[in-house]
Every structure is written in C-alpha cells, then in structure tokens.
C-alpha cells in the first residue's frame, strides 16, 4: 500500500508541476496577448514636423478651410500641399524650433514633407468628402475626432499588417488597445468598413458596394 501511496504522491507531484507549467504558460501568454502583442503589432510613428492644429486654429486664428478645402470638381484636397504652407511660411514667423526646422529643411530646400497619414483609406476605397460634409452635413469631428484641437504633436500607431492607424488624444493610450472594435473618445483613426456601414445603416443610407469602392 505504502509504495502505492508513494507512487500516487509522486504522480500528484508530477501532476501539480505539470499543471503549474500549464498555468505559467497560460498566464504568460494571456498577459502577453493583452499587453505586449498589441504593442508589437503596431509601429509607433511621429510626424516629421511637429505641427500643432490648436496653435494654427485657436492662437493664429486660421479657419479650417484655409488649408483643408474642396477642389472645384468637388474632390477633397486632403492634407495641404507645400504651396499652401509656403503661402505663410516663406520665412520664419516665430521662434519655434519646429518651425525653424520646417522652413530650413523643407521650404528653403524645396522638399515636400512626408506627413504621416492616419486617416488614409486603402486604394480600393473612394471616399467622398463632399457627400458627407456638404450634403449630409456630417461634422469633421464625427470621423476625425478632436484632431483640429490637438495641442500635442500627434504621435500615431500604424498596424504593421493592415497599415490602419490610430492616434490617441488626451490620456495615455490604454496598453491593450488594438484599434479595438469600439472607438473610445480618445482614440481615432482609419475608419474601417464596418464603421462606415454601421453609420450608413443607422442613417438609412445605401450600402451599395460601388458607392465607396472603386
């Protein structure tokens, strides 16, 4: 009997170790899955020049459509081209080191700034700003969030696989953010098709494929 007990105890011990190993693995990967992997799947990016929307808008008093406007044919000009910037920044206007960098590195050298785009839709999508902004009167903030009020230079994260990006305003980004299914107030980025479709459905608009796909 004794030897039998011994054997059992040994087995129990083995089982306990095995179970322990099992749980260690489980916990490590559970934690990794919640904390490390989300970070790993996104690349952190900074804009080449620290542009501050709030400064240009609130402090200088430029209206949004000075830089963001529609072309005559109704298409959206998007991120302003250098010519727009150079309209004001022909020479240094202030003391900011970033402006100095902008003027010296880009304006004077006639180089274009490769702005990081975190709202850019993939090539298969043709999004109409006219239809949304002019016709449906959707506010910019509905999709872009507090972009125009950002006081901080916008660091953003780009998914290494999809290239979909998001930017976090206000508080630190939660470490477990995957650009999750539900957008939080402080996280804004590339609109996914399900988000488009949700909004269209809720407003009773058509969800025909060719409406947005090209």
């Amino acid at each position: 009997m004794e030897s039998g007990v011994k054997k059992l105890k040994k087995g129990e011990r083995e089982f306990a170790i095995t179970a322990g190993v099992f749980f260690v693995g489980l916990i490590i990967f559970l934690l990794a899955g919640w904390t490390v992997l989300p970070r790993l799947s996104y690349a952190e990016k900074v804009q080449p020049v620290e542009f501050r929307h709030a400064f240009h808008g609130e402090d200088v008093g430029i209206t949004c459509d000075t830089c963001h406007f529609f072309y005559k044919d109704g298409s959206w000009a998007g991120i302003p081209k250098m010519e727009i910037c150079v309209d004001c920044h022909v020479y240094l206007l202030g003391q900011s080191p970033e402006e100095k960098k902008f003027v010296h590195e880009y304006v004077l050298k006639n180089r274009h700034v490769k702005w990081g785009l975190y709202f850019r839709q993939p090539e298969c999508v043709s999004f109409s700003h006219s239809s949304h902004v002019r016709m449906a009167k959707v506010a910019c903030e509905t999709c872009h969030g507090p972009q125009g009020l950002s006081k901080k230079p916008t660091e953003y994260r780009t998914n290494r696989i999809t290239k979909y990006s998001f930017v976090v305003y206000g508080a630190e980004a939660p470490s477990n953010n995957y650009g999750g299914l539900k957008k939080e107030k402080s996280v804004w980025g590339t609109i996914r098709m399900d988000e488009c479709a949700d909004c269209h459905r809720s407003r009773g608009k058509s969800t025909a494929c060719f409406l947005c796909h090209k």
Partner: peptide, 9 residues
C-alpha cells in the same frame, strides 16, 4: 495556447 486564445491577440 489557451492563454493566447483567451487574449484578443
């Protein structure tokens, strides 16, 4: 594996 599956990754 289970840990990973229980996480959203």
């Amino acid at each position: 594996a289970l840990g990973l599956m229980l996480s959203p990754a």
